[in-house]
């Protein structure tokens, strides 16, 4: 469930292969300096955005909609950067 306190954005996976190790690594890298937790949510499952393995276990294929959530509003730039990365198909 998306908490109302969290700031979040919904994005769709656009790259052909879905979210694989290298794309997950790009996300993990972006959030490594966040002040608080950043989460990736798909359906009922939530993954820690700083963990490649965690993100991979969500099995996000092309076309999946995911929600990116931040706990601390000051991480908004990170949120936007992650959302743009996903929307751009991870630059693939």
């Amino acid at each position: 469930m998306v908490s109302e306190e969290y700031v979040y954005r919904e994005v769709m996976i656009r790259n052909e292969l879905g979210m694989h190790a290298r794309s997950a690594a790009k996300i993990a890298k972006l959030v490594q300096d966040s002040k608080a937790h950043v989460w990736v949510k798909k359906g009922d499952e939530t993954a820690d955005a700083s963990s490649i393995v965690d993100i991979l276990t969500l099995a996000c294929e092309k076309g999946t909609t995911i929600t990116i959530m931040i706990e601390d509003p000051s991480d908004i730039d990170i949120l936007n950067a992650v959302a743009e990365l996903v929307e751009s198909g991870f630059g693939e």
């Binding site: 290298r22 690594a25 963990s51 393995v53």
Partner: peptide
Amino acid sequence: HILETHMALLKDKSL
């Protein structure tokens, strides 16, 4: 680049 990803995985929280 696969090896680079493996480098990152080594220190991954979930592992």
